[in-house]
Write a protein that binds this DNA or RNA. Structure first.
Length: 209
DNA sequence: CTCCAGGGGGCCA
DNA sequence: TGGCCCCATGGA
C-alpha cells in the first residue's frame, strides 16, 4: 500500500489539523487518558477544571487524593476509573523518573513496554503519549484507522493493533511530523466521512485506495 | 428517544 | 482466546 499517496490526499483535502492541543507534555499525557472512549470537548472541560484548581503539575497530581481528582475530571466521563488511571501514570513517572523530561530520555521501546504495564494504559494511549507528548516517531492506531483501512480493503476488520501498526510504519518513512499529522487526519476523516452509520460513502475523499 | 466519542480492564467458560 | 460486561458525561 502506498500510504504516502494516501497521506498526501488527506492533507491536501483537510489541511493541517494542529494536533495535539495541550500546553505541555504533562497536559497531553493527562488528555490521552481522559479521552479514552470520550469526546474531546468533554476532556477539555476536565483539563480546564484541573488548571483552575492549579493541579496541572506532577507534584500536585501526585499529592491529590484519587477521590478528589475524580470530581475535577467528572465531565470527561468514567471519572472514577480515570482518576485511578491518572494516579497510576503520575506515580509511575514520579517514582521511576522524577520528571516527565527524564522519562522520555529512556529508550523508546523500553519505555513503551513499561508504560503498557501501567494499569489503565493500553496501546493507543501509550502510543499517543509517546508521539504527542514525547515526540517519538510511533504511529498511533485507533478505531478510526481500523475502520477506514478495513473499509478500503487495506486491512481486515479485526486486525491486531501491533500488526496494523507494524505494516503502516514499515511503509512510511520514520518521520515524527508525518506520524503526528497522519493520525490526526485519519481521525478527521473518520469523524466527517467514515462514521459507523454510513459504511457506503461515495463522498469519501480517499475513494480509490 | 438513541447513538457514540481521540479505550481499557476484568471475568468466566 | 473468545465473548461479554463495566465504566459515565454530554453533544448531536
Amino acid at each position: 500500500m502506498d500510504l504516502m499517496k494516501l497521506y498526501d490526499r488527506l492533507y491536501g483535502f483537510f489541511g493541517p489539523q494542529h494536533w495535539w492541543p495541550g500546553d505541555s507534555p504533562l497536559e497531553i499525557m493527562i488528555g490521552a487518558v481522559l479521552t479514552q472512549n470520550t469526546n474531546w470537548q468533554n476532556v477539555e472541560k476536565a483539563i480546564s477544571n484541573l488548571k483552575e484548581a492549579r493541579l496541572m503539575d506532577l507534584e500536585s497530581l501526585y499529592n491529590v487524593p484519587a477521590q478528589s481528582l475524580a470530581e475535577y475530571i467528572r465531565p470527561a466521563g468514567y471519572y472514577n476509573i480515570k482518576s485511578v488511571r491518572l494516579k497510576h501514570l503520575i506515580v509511575f513517572v514520579k517514582e521511576n523518573y522524577g520528571s516527565i523530561e527524564k522519562m522520555f530520555e529512556e529508550e523508546t521501546e523500553i519505555l513503551r513496554e513499561k508504560l503498557l504495564a501501567v494499569k489503565g494504559l493500553g496501546p493507543e494511549t501509550v502510543d499517543s503519549i509517546l508521539l504527542y507528548a514525547g515526540n517519538k516517531p510511533i504511529f498511533v492506531v485507533d478505531a478510526y484507522t481500523k475502520r477506514i483501512f478495513s473499509r478500503h480493503n487495506l486491512c481486515f476488520e479485526d486486525v491486531d493493533y501491533h500488526e496494523l501498526q507494524s505494516e503502516i510504519m514499515a511503509s512510511l518513512p520514520k518521520d515524527l511530523d508525518l506520524y503526528n499529522e497522519f493520525h490526526a487526519l485519519i481521525v478527521r476523516l473518520g469523524k466527517d466521512y467514515c462514521k459507523k452509520r454510513n459504511p457506503l460513502c461515495e463522498k469519501c475523499p480517499i475513494n480509490g485506495f
